[in-house]
């Protein structure tokens, strides 16, 4: 594991030294709400292809705002976001969003929900249902295709949200605290499943969380944001072996030390 020094001036230099090519680049992004609330201040980041990067920080650090800007759901006040080398102007087919509150349509079945991204693109019903069925199965909901969201538990609903994002075959998955609305046990299971999922699906993940353990457990890299105004505080590259036994990670001294270190860094921002 390597602790990077606090980023002060040149995140681009760091990015350039990395092996993988950046698929998402954030350049000089500012976000100001209501004229005077500075949610994000001068954010410069790049995200490499195929990696899982977490945006971590206490509430009010603007991590969700940043993710929504990358998703194209929010407009930055200044700066720009490049995806695959092109400046974004809104949501695009190369990105898919997983919502904190799941954002499932209560009047539609699991299958229709999972196929909704494809439905919006005008994919014929037979084809999109086939694709959705595959991903519903992959997230572990085989047999629930015809159920409605209110018949599912919170964890299962988020699996539908995940299947929907996977079904559109985007390169980048943007996950906004996807596991925060589910209970602790389900959450652990989810984290393990996410690691497994990465072995099957070759995608870039951007993952927002307020849980240090979760960030350290699932990420290749953690971007630590500090609040008021939200800015990049630290970038931590992790080198934790994610082998056959997902449980082993939680006992890895490396893992425990990193969690401790991040906690010490974050503590000063809490009231």
């Amino acid at each position: 594991m390597t602790m990077a020094e606090p980023i002060v001036a040149a995140p681009e230099r760091r990015a350039a030294s990395d092996v993988a090519a950046p698929i998402v680049e954030v350049r000089g992004v500012h976000k100001i709400y209501n004229g005077d609330v500075v949610a994000l201040k001068d954010i410069n980041l790049s995200f490499e292809e195929g990696r899982l990067t977490s945006l971590l920080g206490p509430s009010g650090c603007g991590k969700t705002t940043l993710l929504k800007i990358i998703a194209g759901l929010l407009e930055p006040t200044a700066g720009e976001v490049m995806v695959k080398g092109r400046k974004i102007t809104g949501p695009g087919p190369e990105r898919a969003f997983v919502f904190q509150d799941f954002a499932l349509m209560p009047w539609a079945t699991v299958l229709r929900n999972a196929a909704f991204g494809l439905e919006l693109r005008g994919v014929p019903a037979k084809e999109r249902n086939e694709t959705a069925r595959h991903y519903v199965e992959e997230v572990g909901l085989k047999g629930f295709e015809e159920k409605y969201p209110h018949e599912l538990s919170g964890g299962m609903r988020q699996r539908v949200g995940l299947a929907r994002a996977l079904a559109v075959n985007a390169d980048v998955l943007l996950m906004d605290e996807p596991f925060s609305a589910v209970d602790e046990q389900t959450r652990r299971k989810f984290q393990e499943d996410l690691i497994r999922l990465r072995e099957v699906e070759n995608k870039t993940f951007l993952f927002v969380t307020h849980s240090i353990e979760e960030a350290v457990y699932v990420s290749d890299r953690i971007i630590l944001l500090s609040p008021r105004p939200g800015r990049v505080n630290n970038v931590i590259d992790l080198d934790i072996r994610r082998g056959d036994d997902p449980e082993a990670i939680r006992r890895d001294p490396n893992y425990l030390d990193t969690v401790e270190e991040i906690w010490r860094g974050i503590k000063q921002y809490l009231d």
């Binding site: 572990g140 909901l141 299962m156 389900t186 299971k189 497994r196």
Partner: peptide, 19 residues
């Protein structure tokens, strides 16, 4: 994500539809 199936099924048992 293979073993999730059983967990999911177990979960439906205690997740009542909300009224």
């Amino acid at each position: 994500m293979l073993s999730a199936n059983t967990t999911a099924q177990k979960l439906t048992g205690d997740s009542q539809p909300q009224h």
